[in-house]
Amino acid sequence: MSEQHTPPHAAGRPPTDVIDSVGRLLGGPDWERRAARGLAFLRRRITGDYEVDEFGYDQELTDNVLLGACRPLYERYFRVETRGIEKVPAQGGALIVANHSGTLPLDAIMTQVALADHHPAQRRLRMLAADVVFTMPFVGELARKAGHTLACNPDAERLLFGGEVVGVWPEGFKGIGKPFADRYRLQRFGRGGFVSAALRTGTPIIPTAIVGAEEIYPKIGDIKPLARLLNLPYIPVTPTFPWLGPLGLIPLPSKWYIAFGDPIETSGYDPGAAEDPMLVFNLTDQVRETIQDTLYRLLLQRRSVFF
């Protein structure tokens, strides 16, 4: 571009300023530094120069991309408020046990964002997921990269022994796929496998209640034949899905609360305690009742579903 063609009023504003203002708009005042960091990140991704742990957890990808993608949902859309997040220990293993709801496991993902962003020690949550997750293309791959693994005792105990915060939603599909009419009514808590994992590793159990997730996709029906055909646990019918097509996939913007309860210590029991079914059942019940009570208490305090 030659000088004489430049309009006089733009003489002092070379086109680089356009780049600069775009950069500022996207990346804030120190966008150049952020861009340089982004380039380094891209280089590592292209050349494979990053680490994954033996579960396939890609912390770099999770911290830089996956959590960032979920953050607007957490901050702006569901406006999640946490209670007692400091009860999750700053270091060492802990087992988060929470209620499951909402047709899609957004409650689990929001709990992960809560602990990574709002816990003083920025704990990374490693979740135990149903086996169907790992048979599905893309979903299974993404779950492993985000740090999650199959819900089974060997994996749970390995993570807890490794000092990780492990999340488990013991209601499983019974909880997440329950009809809207049954909202906030806890389903059966599996076979107590999570309690024996905590007992074997001596890690505290943190009963956690999540309010708000029940209302995101009110499930009023189930297309069972299609679910069977696709090998899925259910195909939900909600007031918007499948009637509005892809628009029906937009969750309702309910207001969320995640309340972390007082840790239930398990280190005081004998080493053989995990083999005592009576104790395991009792602890399972204790965890379940704590979560149910907290849910009812939070629901009483809640002013509205959406605010």
Binding site: E54, F55, G56, D131, T135, G140, L150, P154, D155, R158
Partner: peptide
């Protein structure tokens, strides 16, 4: 298989 634990020990 998808349903195996993440790591195989000799006893898995």
């Amino acid at each position: 298989a998808a349903r195996d634990p993440a790591l195989f020990t000799e006893d898995t």
